[in-house]
């Protein structure tokens, strides 16, 4: 069938020549007048998007310029962020953003893959649907709810049952002691990462599940038909099949983690400077902006916050661009 469809172009009379013969005999198609308008409507929608994106970048750049020009490169390299002395360096917030996001991603990705594979490959259909709905519901919980839950319930438990034991048992002077140093209040880099991972988990699981369902049943059957066990089918055939899509899932999770504001602001502890342990309080770009926007009275302070927004934009954009690059360089 396909062979015929693709191969017989030579036999079909070309539409152009037949149109020339019959154009005078046939009335014009009734909806034809609308087509150019339709095209311009679509074009203007696309232009609107591009224009607002461009406007956003330009206004961020203009707003952040005083701070950027005042501090120069030290804005990106200095960890000092002090509104009292009007000295602003974003390195701490940049580090906080990247660390929390990547840790969250590392925690969430394996679990998300596990959930999705279970739902698609192993779970009996009667249970799979309710679980899938639950996963999608989880994805819809507003971030402020996660933040509140993180601050009031998760952080105290985390401090008591994870942070304290680890700190108490770390040998003095060892690497572990440095790694686990911090105020045991549960508001730190690691707990922010964990909350973030819980937040991005349902997104990633839901999209991964959709991706897995796009694997043609014949491919699964072919793998099973060779005598593969379910583990071999999943790891050798199904996961490679959705590899390209997986990069997209990772970037979706990362994009969400990078920009997440409320939940992180609640549990990260909001301390400026470079986090020196996983239990140190820290700040991210987004949490710094959220915390200080109302208090920013000085021009330089406001400008520094806007510059943080610009940095966050650039990081997110870079992540997405890298994803595109990875996708296009994929061999299979």
């Amino acid at each position: 069938m396909n062979a015929f469809n693709s191969g017989d172009e030579g036999f079909t009379p070309s539409p152009r020549s037949s149109a020339g013969d019959t154009a005078s005999l046939r009335p014009p198609v009734r909806g034809a007048w609308f087509d150019p308008i339709f095209e311009y409507l679509c074009l203007s929608a696309a232009t609107l998007l591009l224009a607002s994106l461009g406007g956003l970048v330009i206004s961020l750049a203009i707003g952040g310029w005083p701070a950027l020009s005042h501090f120069g490169w030290s804005f990106f390299t200095s960890t000092t962020w002090n509104p009292v002395t009007d000295v602003y360096g974003a390195a701490g917030a940049i580090a906080g953003t990247l660390i929390t996001s990547f840790v969250a991603l590392a925690l969430a990705l394996p679990v998300a893959i596990g959930i999705a594979v279970y739902l698609v490959e192993f779970c009996p259909r009667a249970i799979a649907r309710p679980i899938a709905i639950a996963v999608e519901l989880l994805a819809g919980i507003p971030s402020i709810v996660y933040g509140m839950w993180g601050l009031f319930i998760f952080a105290p438990l985390f401090a008591e049952y994870v942070q304290m034991p680890l700190m108490m048992n770390a040998a003095p002077g060892s690497l572990a002691e440095k790694l686990f140093a911090g105020i045991p209040n549960g508001a730190n880099i690691l707990s922010a990462s964990i909350i973030l991972s819980i937040m991005i988990l349902p997104y990633m699981a839901a999209v991964l599940r959709e991706l897995l369902m796009t694997v043609p049943p014949q491919v699964r059957e072919a793998a099973y038909g060779l005598g593969c066990t379910p583990f071999e089918v999943v790891t050798s055939v199904i996961v490679p099949y959705i590899k390209r899509g997986m990069i997209g899932v990772v970037m979706l999770g990362l994009g969400r983690a990078l920009g997440e504001t409320m939940a992180v602001t609640f549990v990260i502890g909001n301390a400026h400077g470079f986090p020196d342990s996983i239990f140190a309080s820290g700040a991210t770009l987004a949490s710094t902006i959220a915390n200080e926007f109302t208090e920013a009275t000085g021009d330089l302070h406001t400008s520094a916050l806007i510059a943080l927004g610009l940095v966050l934009f650039i990081i997110t954009f870079t992540v997405l661009a890298l994803a595109r690059l990875l996708l296009s360089s994929q061999k299979y």
Binding site: Q218, E221, Y224, L226, G227, V237, P240, K243
Partner: peptide, 21 residues
């Protein structure tokens, strides 16, 4: 053993199903 059975009785499907490798 299902996997072993399918190794002994192979199958080719209607649509070509090369693996992504």
């Amino acid at each position: 053993d299902l996997a072993r059975l399918r190794a002994r009785v192979g199958m080719v499907f209607q649509k070509p199903t090369p693996f992504p490798m």
